[in-house]
Nucleic acid binder design. Structure first.
Length: 556
RNA sequence: GGCUCCAUAGCUCAGGGGAUAGAGCAUUGGUUUCCUAAACCAUGUGUCGCAGGUUCGAAUCCUGCUGGGGCCA
């Protein structure tokens, strides 16, 4: 049930009828009625530009058309109290807002389900995100990807899509060999040996810890074994250790995956060769210079790509194609990959692969997450991956708290660079948007418990018609928008809109709080109605916070 | 050199064909015998990077240019 949607659909239908009745256009000619919410409330609750759009079809001036529509418009059945024509031909509608209070029982009944809809119609999608190599700690970029990906999944789910979250483990490539030699070096160093870090080694703190762990468990047992045996062991040990740590860090960050997919399994289960054979069979490959090429230029890539190098080994692309084929074979209708900006160049060839496999190009969507810069004391924090001096997700969580990190990373549009202000995220002040929103929630909780203490009735029927103050109407309107905000954020893959919404809702609540008194013994009935409204706001803020993985504290 | 993201208030950013372009912060002033002042109210702020084009209408769409980030060669 979605009251706001019903009201809007009804209004659109009445406008349509009026246009036809006024003989301005036939039902076939009529474009979709667009209702927008004017920024200025003096322009009504809704406005439509239909008169301007019809100017060409009806061959009349927009304002003239608007006059005729208004004359034919049935206000009563559209729940409209006033209609105005304004500007170049906008028709502004002022709604009879009595229905608004009806939202409250609906919200209270639906509780944590409020906001959910069937908008996505169970469309099967898979979101692959983070997918960091198991060779080190998660850093800032992964953290942003994790926040955005998880929030997006929550939002898609709430909007009625059927979503699966997947993490792709790059456990087959050369990076795992580098992990093994890095661990070997740290192990030897932990034994007190003079062993320099190899050229391509990983230098994160986690690898040092692994070296020390190994010495504690095995003393120098592995130092004298044959090289190949050593490296195989370090490889296996390191992979297990890193994966466990990745999962634990993500879990702490309130991100969990439905499926961890191993690259190695593609080899073990023989998925690579059939994929290559399929591409060849469909005529998308050719041999040149001893290598096998994929003709991605047929699908808009700027040059063809090698699949099998002349030494017989695969490029990175080959298992990735097999992986995406596997995803599609699993029946997902849409694949969303969330990648860091450094991978954007990879999109055309992946898209080409999807098409070569016989799917529409837009079956694969790639959301690019732009870079994060960390600021502390007004200065950019310098980072270097090579030397292991990157700030890790775990450090960030400990430093500023999970709620702030999650909120800050979804606060901005993904395609903007993000300046992460450590001092702001840490600050327990009104500058900090996380606290601002959480405080609104806590504030309501306090009111509700005070109400109990003071003996106000907090349950049962209430008279919604007593909610007539301007700030009450503002709150109700915002509450009603929630399901649509979720659906819009899902459809456009823009989780940052959720932070905007809950910030606005919190702001409206704070404003109401300062203007009106809720607990008022002189007006018991109004108090009852306001308490019901407060509960509805509390539910909605909590649901909104939950969608972005931020807690809704009862006390602050 | 190719590709890509970005350019909007002093700062950080929303807005992605519609009316007088918004928010937070910063500035200045005010609000508490009263439900949490982590709050509220008031206050000024703009060549929407530049130039063309499409449109009844462009910050928004298209092209080019400039500047910055990133990736690739």
């Amino acid at each position: 049930m979605n009251i706001m949607q019903d009201i809007q659909n009804n209004l659109k239908e009445e406008i349509k009828q009026a246009v036809i009745k006024a003989d301005l256009a036939t039902a076939e000619q009529l474009p979709d009625i667009i209702l927008e919410k004017p920024k200025d409330s003096a322009h009504g609750d809704y406005a439509t530009n239909i008169a301007m759009q019809l100017a060409r079809i009806a061959k009349k001036a927009p304002r003239q058309i608007a006059e005729e529509i208004v004359a034919a418009f049935d206000q009563t059945s559209a729940s409209v109290t006033k209609v105005e024509i304004a500007g170049p031909g906008f028709i502004n509608f002022f709604m009879d807002n009595n229905y608004l209070a009806d939202l409250i029982p609906v919200i209270l009944k639906e509780g944590e389900k409020y906001g959910r809809s069937t908008f996505g119609q169970g469309h099967k999608m898979q979101v692959e995100f983070v997918s960091a190599n198991p060779t080190g700690d998660l850093h800032l970029g992964h953290a942003r990807g994790a926040s955005v990906g998880d929030s997006l999944c929550n939002i898609l789910d709430a909007a009625g899509y059927d979503v699966e979250r997947e993490y792709y483990i790059n456990d087959a490539g050369n990076q795992i060999n580098n992990l093994a030699i890095s661990i070997q070096a740290r192990y030897m160093q932990a034994l007190g040996k003079d062993w320099p870090m190899p050229e391509d080694s990983y230098r994160g703190k986690d690898i040092i810890a692994i070296g020390e762990d190994l010495v504690n468990s095995y003393k120098d047992e592995w130092a004298n074994k044959p090289e190949a045996e050593q490296l195989a062991f370090f490889r296996e040990y390191g992979l297990k250790y890193e994966l466990k740590k990745l999962a634990a860090d993500l879990e702490a960050f309130r991100v969990s995956f439905d499926h961890w997919f191993s690259e190695t399994s593609l080899y073990d289960e023989g998925k690579i060769k059939p994929t290559l054979a399929l591409l060849k069979e469909k005529g998308h490959t050719y041999e040149e210079d001893g290598a096998t090429w994929f003709r991605t230029t047929d699908f808009g890539d700027d040059k063809d790509r090698v699949l099998i190098k002349n030494d017989g080994s695969y490029t990175y692309l080959t298992p990735d194609i097999a992986y995406h084929k596997n995803k599609l074979d699993r029946g997902f209708e849409t694949l969303i990959n969330i990648w860091g900006a450094d991978h954007h160049g990879y999109i055309p060839r992946m898209r080409a692969a999807i098409q070569a496999l016989g799917y529409q190009a837009d079956t694969l969507e790639v959301e690019i997450i732009q870079m994060v810069n960390l600021f502390e004391n007004g200065e950019k924090v310098k980072m270097s991956k090579r030397t292991g001096k990157a700030v890790t997700l775990r450090e960030l969580m400990e430093e500023v708290g999970i709620d702030a990190v999650r909120y800050f990373f979804v606060m901005r549009s993904s395609d903007s660079h993000l300046d992460f202000d450590m001092d702001l995220a840490r600050s327990e002040s009104n500058d900090n948007p996380v606290y601002y929103v959480q405080y609104a929630h806590a504030r309501i909780c306090t009111m509700l418990s005070q109400a109990e203490e003071k003996g106000f009735a907090t349950d049962g029927d209430f008279d919604g018609s007593l909610l007539v103050a301007e700030k009450e109407e503002d709150l109700l309107k915002r509450l009603g928008e929630f399901p649509k905000v979720i659906a819009d954020a899902a459809e456009n893959r823009t989780p940052h809109r959720m932070t905007q919404y809950i910030f606005d809702l919190a702001s409206t609540l704070h404003s109401f709080y300062n203007a009106e008194k809720v607990l008022d013994a002189d007006h018991p009935e109004r108090t009852k109605a306001r308490l019901a409204l407060m509960k509805a706001v509390r539910v909605t803020i909590a649901n909104g916070l939950n969608l972005i993985g931020v807690s809704a504290p009862e006390k602050m």
